[in-house]
């Protein structure tokens, strides 16, 4: 026999007050445990490291988002949210560098979950970032190196960058570069499946090698008749005096140059 909802409700209300209170208590406990278990499992790390200018920061993550931005202090502030209790994060500081190697610190431990980093660094810091998966965001850096390497999938956004060497590479995901090319600098962007967008000043001078088997290369304002095209799959040539070297490779996505 199927009871109607009304009957059921009436039945619940007719229970003894002590039983009803017990049911409410258990329900409330379960409701509290569910979100709080997540909160308790997460670790939060926040540390500050006084450094000289031109410090080098190396971060090798496994999974999670990495955010790096500059600030007007001669110190590094490292904040991390660590999903798993068993994960280790052991930053190591030397005279000229700060190294965080999650991969080595947790080798052989299997999947340690997401670790999300936020780094606030001096504007002249060299940045070397790696992760197996996850997005990387770097902004407002003026230094010798900005490197963002995602072994598998994750977007890379480099905003307001003035570095002499820039490398951005992933397998699946978009790459966005907004900055300027320094004289004699080298710039390398590579993705297997994702769009690559480069936004630079209109007076930029560089030597370009852009390859896209899908023939999706748009140089827009930077196109000139001196460029050589191989079936539209590879375009090589100079913009201006070609004083910096730019290499862009995209297996299955769009390459776009935009003027700031």
């Amino acid at each position: 026999m199927i009871k109607s909802p009304t009957v059921m409700k009436t039945g619940f209300l007719t229970w003894r007050p002590s039983i009803r209170a017990a049911v409410f208590a258990v329900g409330a406990l379960l409701a509290l445990m569910s979100p709080s278990s997540t909160v308790q499992a997460q670790q939060k790390l926040s540390k500050r490291y006084p450094v000289a200018k031109n410090v080098r920061i190396e971060l090798k993550n496994v999974s999670g988002t990495i955010v790096v931005e500059s600030w007007n202090k001669d110190e590094i502030r490292l904040s991390a949210t660590i999903e798993s209790k068993k994960a280790h994060v052991v930053p190591r500081q030397s005279d000229q560098s700060l190294v965080v190697d999650v991969m080595s610190d947790n080798r052989g431990m299997g999947d340690v979950g997401d670790i999300n980093f936020k780094l606030q660094v001096p504007v002249n810091s060299s940045i070397d970032l790696e992760t197996v998966r996850g997005n990387i965001y770097v902004s407002n850096i003026n230094s010798g190196l900005v490197r963002a390497h995602v072994s598998s999938e994750g977007d890379i956004e480099l905003t307001n960058i003035a570095a002499s060497h820039v490398i951005a590479q992933n397998v699946i995901g978009n790459i966005f570069f907004d900055g300027e090319f320094s004289r004699g600098g080298t710039y390398e962007f590579k993705s297997n499946k994702g769009d690559i967008t480069i936004r630079i000043p209109g007076n930029s001078d560089f030597r370009l090698v852009a390859a896209s088997p899908a023939r999706r290369i748009a140089l827009n304002d930077f196109w000139n008749n001196n460029f050589k095209s191989q079936d539209g799959r590879r375009i090589t040539g100079d913009v201006g005096d070609g004083r910096s070297s730019v290499s862009v490779t995209n297996f299955n996505g769009q390459i776009t140059f935009m003027r700031k």
Binding site: V62, M103, R107, G110, D111, V132, S151, S152, V171, K190, N192, A211, P213, Q230, D231, R233, R234, T249, F251
Partner: peptide
């Protein structure tokens, strides 16, 4: 075809890098 050679080289390097990075997990 030079472009295909370049793409194959880079794809094979990417494959090796992916395998090496994931083998450390």
């Amino acid at each position: 075809d030079e472009v295909s050679e370049q793409m194959l080289n880079e794809a094979l390097n990417d494959k090796l890098t992916l395998l090496q990075d994931f083998s450390d997990l």
